[in-house]
């Protein structure tokens, strides 16, 4: 179960399988992607996925941010979870890349998370969230 969840639907109880396992096993609905695995391999199967968990073995390894956006850009609407070495000050960027649940190795201070999500009212660039980029606010 994710420690932090930004979804209203029921959380899925099924454990996530590896990418190889998922591609061979047609009935799984939850998959875990390692940093070096290609998110695009999941694109043909998005309609049967309810959970994609993206692993962050080290917080400095930013490949998972691209994996998340690629899945959202391809139309994935299920749960997208960041799991592992996920820090408070990364949640805001991860939300912008499309993550909507978090399973950090170390528990997060809920107040600090809330504060980190409210510092910025605006974003300069379009990403995988609903934020309207500043240039769009300027020009409509």
């Amino acid at each position: 179960m994710a420690e932090l969840r930004f979804r209203n639907d029921e959380a899925l109880e099924q454990p996530a399988v590896t990418l190889d396992g998922f591609l061979q096993q047609s009935n799984a609905t939850a998959v875990r992607l390692e940093p070096d695995e290609d998110a695009r391999l999941l694109i043909p199967h998005l309609d049967r996925l309810a959970l994609v968990e993206i692993a962050f073995p080290k917080f400095r390894d930013g490949r998972g941010y691209s994996s998340a956006r690629i899945l959202r850009e391809a139309g994935y609407r299920g749960e997208l979870r960041a799991a592992g070495d996920v820090l408070v000050d990364q949640i805001a960027y991860m939300r912008r890349c499309g993550f909507d649940s978090f399973l950090p190795d170390a528990p997060l201070d809920a107040e600090a998370v809330q504060a980190s999500l409210t510092f910025y009212d605006h974003a300069y660039q379009r990403a995988a969230d609903t934020a309207v980029p500043v240039w769009k606010l300027r020009h409509g």
Binding site: F59, R60, D61, G62, Y65, S66, R69, Q90, A92, Y93, M94, R96, C97, Y120, A123, Y124, Q125, A127, V134, W135
Partner: peptide, 14 residues
């Protein structure tokens, strides 16, 4: 400058 400022995908590059 604006595009790259707090770019959510490219803040933990190699």
């Amino acid at each position: 400058r604006q595009w790259s400022t707090f770019h959510p995908e490219f803040s933990y590059l190699p």
